[in-house]
């Protein structure tokens, strides 16, 4: 099939950037969206032009590196699917497809479709862990974990830190990302001792990193490729209130 893509081109963080239109011809419907961009880039290189920079690595939906807003939707039209897992059979011959980077105050553009998501790491640094120095661990079966809690913790822990939630949020909030980590660790017995400080410190770090506030719009969960549920934000808020009460005591 033949399509057109209108791609955001920005040479570096100081450039203003613009949309540029390219024809991409003879694309197999079995190609992935990134493979379509590979084809475009091969042509751009041979034409002496600058290929489009985009982040990707695993190309199987797990590393969280790929990050494109496709036709206005973070990760594109297919639900619960990362950009790298989206295939061209979801488009038609003659389509014009817009491709843009994540846009959020906390994710500055580095080049073209590549953004800086290191703010996520700073949220984790603030408390997204359980302190367990190597060698000090008790026998694994010493503490059973109810299966229900373990399963819920796992669901929350499948977040791939792609940042689509932030890109989709009109406020540029990272609440779903933070809530997923708070829920994962807060559901495990091992995570209890640091539960209060964790939520307080991570929310502080989230503000410091320049993410916006959450006003319960729910756009984040709509685009999340891993199906992280919106109700984890409610859980985070209640954890936060408890933590504040406990620390006031």
């Amino acid at each position: 099939m033949d399509i057109q893509v209108r791609v955001w081109r920005q040479s570096d963080s100081s450039d203003k950037g613009r949309m540029v239109t390219y024809d991409v011809k003879d694309i197999s419907p079995d190609a992935s969206f990134l493979e379509m961009l590979d084809v475009l880039n091969e042509k751009l290189i041979l034409d002496g032009a600058d290929p489009v920079a985009f982040d990707h690595d695993c190309r199987e939906g797990i590393c969280g590196m790929c990050s494109m807003v496709i036709d206005g939707v973070a990760h594109g039209p297919q639900r619960a699917t990362t950009t790298c897992q989206l295939h061209m059979r979801h488009f038609k011959d003659g389509d014009v497809i817009d491709v843009e980077p994540w846009r959020a105050a906390a994710f500055p553009v580095i080049k073209d479709l590549v953004v800086d998501r290191s703010a996520f790491d700073r949220i984790i640094q603030a408390g997204g862990y359980i302190t367990a120095p190597t060698g000090a661990a008790p026998e694994a079966h010493a503490t059973p974990v109810p299966k229900k809690d373990a399963d819920l913790a796992f669901e929350a822990a499948t977040c791939i830190a792609c940042g689509a939630c932030v890109a989709a949020c009109p406020n540029g909030s990272s609440m779903l990302f933070t809530a997923a980590k708070v829920a994962h660790l807060g559901l495990m017995p091992q995570g209890q001792p640091e539960r209060d400080t964790r939520v307080i410190d991570m929310l502080q770090a989230q503000d410091d990193a320049g993410f916006g506030g959450c006003t319960n719009m729910g756009e984040c969960a709509e685009v999340c490729p891993k199906g992280i549920p919106l109700n984890l934000i409610g859980r985070l808020n209640s954890d936060y209130r408890k933590a504040l009460r406990n620390s006031a005591r």
């Binding site: 367990a132 000090a136 661990a137 008790p138 694994a140 373990a150 913790a153 796992f154 660790l185 091992q190």
Partner: peptide, 14 residues
């Protein structure tokens, strides 16, 4: 396994 469980790795459980 002990180390990972202590870190909160959500392994499958019975």
């Amino acid at each position: 396994i002990d180390q990972c469980v202590a870190q909160g790795v959500p392994f499958a459980r019975e």
